[in-house]
Each structure stands twice: as C-alpha cells, then as structure tokens.
Amino acid sequence: MVQAQGLVYEYKKYDEEGRETEVTRAVDQVTFGIQKGDFVAILGHNGSGKSTLAKHMNAILTPTGGTMWVDGRDTREEDKLWEIRQRAGMVFQNPDNQIIGTIVEEDVGFGPENMGVPTKEIWERVEESLKAVNMLKYRHHSPNKLSGGQKQRVAIAGVVAMHPQCIVLDEPTAMLDPNGRKEVIRAVRALNQVEEITVILITHYMEEVIYADKVLVMDQGRVVMEGTPREIFSQVEKLKSYRLDVPQATLLAYELKRAGIDLPDGILTREELVEALCQSN
C-alpha cells in the first residue's frame, strides 16, 4: 500500500543573500512497506522526522532522494498527484487549522467537492462518513462549538468521504484531553477494523500504539526499531534512549522483572499484567 525505498528528505536553509548555509536531513534512508489493511504506528520524539515522513505519504512533500510509492504510484509523478492524495488521506495535529467549512457537513463535503463527485453522491458520502466516526448528529453544527475530540473526528470524516484506501494521522491526539484522545482512537480503530482502511498513526502516546499491527520507531530521521507492539515495548531501555516511554503496565512489569520476578516479555495492558502475576505466583 505504502512503500518507501531509501527515502531521504533534506531541508535547506539559506542566508540573506540566498546562499546555502545548512542542510538538515529530516528523513534519512528510510525503507519500509505497509500492507493493505494494516494498522501501523510510527513513534518518535518531537523532531525525530516522523511528521516529515508522514507528509511524503500524501505527496505534500516529495523525496529529495529515494522513492515513495502510494498504491503503486511514485509520489514524484506530478500527473498522479490527485490520485495519490485521494488514496492516502491525511489528518493533521491541530483540529482548528484543518476544518475549512463553517458547518460540519459542509466541511466533510469539501474533499469530494474538490474531486468532482456528483452532488447526490457527495451527500451519501457525507452521511456515511459522519456515521463512521459517530458524528452524524452534529452535522448541522458549527465546528467552533465542538470539543477537540469531536473536531478531530470531523476532520477524519472529511478524509473518509474521499474514499481513501489509507489514512495517515499526524499526531491527531497531541492537542486533545484524555477523553478526546479515546474518542479519536476508537474512531480510527473502527475505520481500520470495519471499513478495512489502512491506518498509519503517528503519535508519541504509548497507550495508543498497543492496538497496532506494527510499530516503527524513528530517531534522527531513521527508522531505528520495527516490530509488533510486544516486541517494541519489551525493550524499555532502548525506547527510553530515544526519548520515548512505555505504557504504565509495561513499565511496572519491567520494574518487577528487574527485581527478580519471573514475568513474560512485552506485557502491554493492565489485564495482562494481573494475569501474568497470578500465574507466576
């Protein structure tokens, strides 16, 4: 679905006379492949290059080296641009800065309008997308009156209405409170499981990663770890060295293991921990 081969992206800084002063490599030789229907999480601290990488999946940025394919299309081919953007929808961090419409349903219709979808079908798509994120009853509301989690779900519906095969969410929960975070993650998981849309979730909240099929960890523009959540979270020390964290249950399990208790690796949820402790006793 989404594939990167030796992907490089360099920012260039110029001084007042237009001379190159500094070249920053935001993404450095990244190679990975994401299968259709997968739920993939990309973890990384602020400035690790994960947002820059995300913007490549929707052809907002094009690589300065290597290649990115979205559903078999090279993102550097300009005539494929709109096909790529329709196939890989993108949700951003700040809910206020990505809602264009002044009424919820008009915002959701914005994407299909741009694609030239016939009017009648736009209405159908708006309705089913709002239903998919459980926001149908707010369709006539103004986005300004919604909570952060609700706004973010509207933004997701706006992408779903474009019938993408894949949704890239760039820290969609960073500005939300815990309830908003739960709402958004629930909606995203439902899209993945019910609608079978490929999900790429970029985040630094460890609890949101537990349900992913695969996790990529980024640091300094490189993919430094790759595996299932269980595999990733069993390496507590390594994660900490990348300025990251593990879920609380995992951390407690790790502390207990260090104190000599025999527990399996990669405990993710509190239920698993309680279960494991009962067995070890």
């Binding site: 913007k55 929707n58 953007r85 929808g89 951003f92 741009n114 706006g158 474009m162």
Partner: peptide
C-alpha cells in the same frame, strides 16, 4: 496544507 491534502 490541509486543503491541498484534500485535493483542493
């Protein structure tokens, strides 16, 4: 950016 991402 958000508008472009939605094919505007």
């Amino acid at each position: 950016m958000a508008m472009e991402a939605r094919c505007y």
